[in-house]
Simulated assay, not measured.
Amino acid sequence: MKKNNLIPKITIISFLTMLFSCHDISNEKEKLITEKQDLPKVAILGMLHFTSKNNTVSQKFTEVKTKKRQAEIKNLIESLKVFNPNKIAVERPYRSEEELNTKYRSYLDGTYELTEEETDQIAFRLARELNHQRLYLAYSPVQYAFDSTVAFAKRNGQSKLIDSIIENATELAEEYDKIALNGTIQDAVYYLNTEGAIAKNHLGYILLSQIGDKQNKIGAETVGDWYKSNIKIFENIRQLADSNTERVLVLYGQGHLKILNQLIEDSPELELVDINEYLK
Rank of each mutant, 00 (worst) to 15 (best):
G110R: 04
G157Y: 10
M18N: 08
T17M: 13
G219E: 07
N193A: 10
K36L: 08
R92I: 08
Y227T: 11
E167W: 02
L257N: 10
E221Y: 14
F20L: 12
E72H: 08
Y205A: 09
V82Q: 13
A153D: 02
I233P: 00
L279P: 08
M47N: 12
L108E: 06
F124V: 11
V42I: 15
R105P: 00
Q215L: 11
K154I: 09
I88T: 04
A71F: 11
K41F: 08
N236M: 00
T62Q: 14
L260D: 04
L108P: 06
P268S: 11
A71P: 02
Y136G: 09
D213T: 11
T170L: 12
Q254L: 09
S58Q: 03
G219M: 12
F146A: 05
S79L: 09
Y191I: 05
I264A: 08
E99K: 13
E175T: 13
E174S: 12
E118R: 03
L161R: 11
D177L: 00
R238Y: 12
S209A: 13
N276E: 07
L126T: 00
E171L: 13
K31C: 07
Y190F: 15
G253Y: 03
N156E: 02
D266R: 04
T11P: 06
I77T: 11
K68A: 06
F83V: 08
D213M: 06
T119D: 02
M47K: 07
Y176C: 11
F50M: 07
K74M: 04
I7S: 07
T102W: 12
N236Y: 00
D274T: 05
I13V: 15
N156M: 08
R134V: 09
T245Q: 14
H23F: 14
K258N: 10
S164N: 14
L48C: 10
T66E: 05
Y190P: 05
E265C: 03
K2Q: 12
T194G: 03
Q186W: 06
I231C: 07
L130M: 01
R105G: 00
E97Q: 10
I211D: 01
R105F: 01
A138D: 02
H49F: 07
Y94I: 09
A153I: 08
K65Y: 07
F234I: 02
L19R: 00
A123E: 01
L114Q: 01
E63K: 01
E175P: 05
T17Q: 08
K67L: 14
K160A: 05
Y136T: 02
I77P: 07
N27K: 12
T111H: 09
G255W: 02
Y139V: 04
